[in-house]
């Protein structure tokens, strides 16, 4: 009888589910296990590598990067975490592999200012 066959399918699956582990990941009460390739927070590997060429700014689809240049050596690279789409194009476009995406989660915030980070600062007075 088809009714019994259908019950057999589902009852087997019900039993398997009952005996297996819960599927729910109880984040944030349990740690979130993120793979190494997860595209998370945008960071600089080494500030010295960044030449301020602006390729990352040009290729960012979300317009989340901004470069303020005063002159050849003095510039500031700002990243707006709330605009960022975490696509990784900046990391792909950077010729010196200075900017990368780590696999940390970016926490939300209610203060807009905490979501703006200055990635690189080469200010006039710091180089003397």
């Amino acid at each position: 009888m088809p009714l019994l066959r259908s019950l057999a399918h589902l009852l087997t699956e019900l039993r398997r589910t009952l005996l297996a582990e819960r599927v729910t990941v109880q984040f944030p009460f349990a740690p979130a296990e993120l793979p190494a390739e997860f595209r998370g927070r945008v960071i600089l590997t080494d500030e010295a590598l960044c030449k301020g060429c602006g390729l990352c700014v040009r290729d960012c689809p979300a317009l989340a990067l901004e470069l303020e240049r005063q002159d050849r050596e003095h510039f500031r690279l700002i990243h707006y975490r709330d605009r960022c789409a975490y696509c990784g194009q900046c990391a792909d476009s950077c010729p010196s592999h200075a900017i990368v995406l780590s696999n940390e989660l970016v926490s939300p915030s209610q203060e807009r200012d905490t979501l703006t980070q200055v990635l690189v600062e080469h200010a006039p007075d710091s180089t003397g």
Partner: peptide, 8 residues
């Protein structure tokens, strides 16, 4: 947007 940005 330019072609590279448009991929995303």
């Amino acid at each position: 947007r330019n072609y590279v940005q448009n991929v995303h």
